[in-house]
């Protein structure tokens, strides 16, 4: 039995009157890759933001490595173990790529500078960005920025990685290079929660798919189950949106 790394118990999140997450329960095992799908506004991103403590919960609790995530007490410490990558990259524009990666390990974890720089450079090499260490984020393409952001998250040695629609702002060709990186991480056995609209990728990378609707987990299962035999009507409708029927051509050849 693999160890449980993250657990959500009866998590509820409201923005004023709007309920975004309702009584959500989830258990994540170490090494598991979970892909969260669902229509816009179903609470996918909010779910990740709650796990990272960027949103306060109205009810329920989130337990990470046996510790209750407490907004006032241990958040900063636990966050170092929970890496997050954002849709809009959010590299720091006034710092070089290398500085972006080394900042938090140096000032938060107070690690040795030489060691951090060496590791950052190794990570950049793995991301195919060794030439870009001293560039500023604005000099990078979207795909490169996102890979740098992933390297930045990795340099903190997180136990869980959260990916929030990390390819949604990218051109199609760049989507691939970023997803390739994430797929590699999955193969290394990293625990990940991924929010995405890339269904093919979801199918390839996921151990488990969560289908969210109105802040609840409507369906949960292996990629095969979910994509081949969706149980609910809503999931069927959702999956249909990614398919197009061949139109009848009006031109006779």
């Amino acid at each position: 039995m693999t160890e449980e790394i993250l657990k959500l118990e009866h998590v509820s999140k409201k923005f004023h009157d709007l309920t975004v997450l309702e009584d959500l329960n989830l258990s994540v095992k170490r090494g598991e890759v979970i892909v969260v799908v669902g229509t816009s506004g179903c609470g996918k991103s909010t779910l990740l933001r709650c796990i990272n403590g960027l949103e306060k919960l109205q009810a329920g609790r989130i337990i990470f490595e046996g510790e209750n995530i407490d907004y006032d007490k241990n958040l900063s410490r636990l966050r170092q173990k929970i890496g997050m990558v954002f849709q809009s990259y959010e590299l720091f524009p006034h710092k070089t790529v290398l500085e972006n990666i080394t900042l938090a390990p140096l000032v938060v974890q107070k690690r040795d500078k030489k060691e951090v720089v060496r590791e950052a450079k190794e990570l950049l090499k793995k991301m195919g960005l060794e030439q870009k260490a001293d560039s500023y984020p604005r000099e990078l393409s979207g795909g490169q920025k996102q890979r740098a952001a992933i390297a930045r998250a990795l340099c903190m040695h997180p136990d869980v990685l959260l990916f929030d629609e990390v390819t949604a702002a990218l051109d199609p060709e760049m989507v691939h290079e970023v997803l390739e990186v994430i797929l590699n991480l999955a193969n290394q056995g990293r625990t990940m929660l991924i929010v995405t609209h890339e269904m093919q990728f979801a199918r390839a990378v996921a151990d488990r798919i969560l289908f969210l609707e109105d802040g609840r987990i409507l369906e949960e299962g292996s990629p095969e189950e979910f994509f081949e035999h969706p149980k609910t009507e809503r999931a069927k409708q959702f999956l249909q949106k990614f398919q197009y029927e061949k139109r009848k051509s009006l031109v006779t050849t």
Binding site: L54, A104, V107
Partner: peptide
């Protein structure tokens, strides 16, 4: 979200 990104790396408010 710049600030959130810093927070998510574990930086304190002052940092």
């Amino acid at each position: 979200v710049q600030i959130e990104s810093a927070c998510s790396l574990g930086l304190s408010g002052l940092q």
